[in-house]
Design a protein around this nucleic acid. Structure first.
Lengths: 218, 218, 218, 218
DNA sequence: GATGAATGAGGCTTCATTCAT
DNA sequence: GATGAATGAAGCCTCATTCAT
């Protein structure tokens, strides 16, 4: 393994990526958008509690009072990012599950690809959505939790179908889900566009891994 | 999948576990130990910046000034936890790598088992060590980063050996490492002793998954 | 004493009345009027410093910037209310003093009636004028202070005349003035149109009380 | 009436007195006491919302953070003053009602004396207790409201007894209570130790006024 | 070893006001 | 007239830390 690749893993930072990316349909014009973008980076790198409203204002080149013309509280900025992240993830997962052959193996491949792709294309968003959810009040966290549960159920169902159909051979469905889901989530932490991998390659390879896990060494 | 198992994944919390556990050789007597234990839980659940010195004092049933009779700063409490976590993890990994047959497959199995076991047995410690490292000054983070790099290199070497020996068939060694390492790290977030799995079972199954990933569907 | 009456006195509120009332000749049309009316209520209930420009805007169903199309500053809104209150009070007092028999007893009766009536008919205005004057700059408070001094002098003169004429028997003129003036001012705090008293009844009875105070139990 | 006396009434200030006085049994030692004393003056003169925590800290010659070593919030400082004021007032009223001949006239004299004396001896405390109660949360205001209701009932009962006994001749008991109570409350606003009256003189004269009001010009 | 009091710095948020549209 | 956005100042309060006791 070359050094530049393994160096991506040897960092004190919570996240390797440095590009601020949000799904294309999210409008980032104006000050509201600027705030969202800078908050995405800061919350991903330092966490919600590690980022002060002043840090955010400095990053946006505005006075901190101006933030409150656009979001009611700091928590609401986080809530917006968490919402966007979960909605994007959920949309990709459900579309992937539906769009293609219905056999469990190819569906699993598509779902894992979508899961990993979301984490590789939007690493900051994924890190914030995954790691900072606990900083939200239960009311603001609720919608995200529901989307998360739905996405997970989709993976569970796909694997259970494969088991039922006899095409999957997995020692424990729950543990397979945690493993496949977990490896994909961690992509957000180490993936960086400076690495010699396109998100698609990572997604393809990880989908392979998921199928190896579920199909066994038969 | 039964509901109680999938429910463990559907939480706003950063960590499912609720037992405060530290390696046995860590002395937890007296107020210093109490502080370390409570900090472990609070830093795991709310993060370093989300936990105030007063939160910690309340949890320890002492006044916050008393903390400074035991640790020079709040950061040093975190540093101690990060140190313990990384040392334990590294010790287990190196011992596992050395203690047994030298063939890549059985070594990989032992290394992954050790990796996963450490995360299942000490979930809070792992979450703190993995997620809060960025809150330390570079000086205090340094030793942990070195142990982490060493542990990762061990996994890299093992896989590369298997590839060289022709017993592993993996599309990309780097991605295999991130996947195997990542699935293990996430165990700290979802594992809970209330689940119907012993840490050993998770470790065994995940080691299976690692071998499936590396050996392919041959 | 019936409960509903004594209940009017047992409140945390600064003022019992809930009707927003201003003298009839004050134009309240348009947004300027709306602002004045809502400010009257808010300043009476929460005080000038306890009411923000945004509270006021919300009450008026406008944006806070719109306020500045109608009044130069928040302080000027208060100044306007204070002016209206003092002018109305002073006008009533001087008219009452002039309009009727010149003998001290009947003049005192008319003056006290006018004093009390103003406080019962415009309780919010009186509370604002009496309690929030200190929030004005000396320049803006000046005119009100002059009217107030004039009104008080009118009462002093009336009582002194009665004493000089031998029809009043009062132990101390100054204390009689403070007592008569003070009981009337407090009417603004407890009077409410829901009470089974018309403002006129209160005014008549308080005027009786004033005469009892000044004429003694002869 | 001499000018210096009437000048006491012609002020923009909410209160004429400038001595910071609290009942003797209230401990004023240390920083907590200092905070209470300075808050008493500031809240009386500028109101609760008109006094910032920094104003208070400057007056106490401490840093504003130090306030929070002594009181949990600014509101609690007010609550303490309101509590002290209402307790002192209530204690004096009930003792006055009990300590002496039971006939309505002499009891009324004692009760009014106590009422007025409390307002003349502790004008700042009375102004704060009377005017700033609305700034407290309902929970913190509750105890004061109960004491206030009890004190008022005592006055009501005394007057009703006198009426029942045929020694009082009052057109309306409720209005007599508001008048007697109100004139006494306003004493806190105008009384100043620089005036040529001792609190006792004011109390005696106001008690005379109360008896004139209730006994009529018979 | 423990603590109450103190503090400088900074936390998030609201303040009254301005101004271009 | 009305408003969305912006802002400097200030709001209340908590932060981690120190120190005398």
């Amino acid at each position: 393994m070359t050094n530049d690749r393994s160096a991506a893993l040897a960092t004190q930072r919570r996240i390797a990526a440095s590009d601020i990316r949000l799904p294309e349909h999210i409008l980032l014009e104006g000050t509201s958008g600027r705030i969202l973008r800078e908050a995405l980076q800061l919350f991903a790198e330092r966490g919600f509690y590690g980022t002060s409203i002043r840090d955010l204002a400095v990053a946006c080149e505005i006075r901190s009072a101006t933030l409150y013309s656009h979001y009611p509280t700091k928590e609401n900025v986080l809530a917006e990012l968490v919402r966007i992240g979960h909605e994007e993830h959920h949309r990709r997962l459900t579309e992937a599950a539906a769009a293609g052959p219905a056999d469990p193996a190819s569906r699993l491949r598509r779902v894992v690809r979508a899961h990993v792709l979301a984490h590789a294309e939007f690493p900051m968003l994924a890190v914030v959505a995954n790691n900072e959810l606990h900083a939200l009040s239960p009311e603001l966290a609720g919608p995200a939790l529901m989307l998360r549960a739905a996405g997970r159920q989709l993976l569970i169902d796909t694997i259970n179908e494969g088991i039922a159909a006899g095409v999957f051979d997995v020692p424990d469905a729950f543990l397979a889900v945690t493993a496949i889901s977990g490896m994909g989530m961690r992509v957000a932490n180490w993936y960086d566009s400076a690495l010699p991998y396109e998100p698609n390659e990572v997604a393809d390879t990880y989908a392979d891994f998921a199928l190896r896990i579920t199909k066994g060494n038969s």
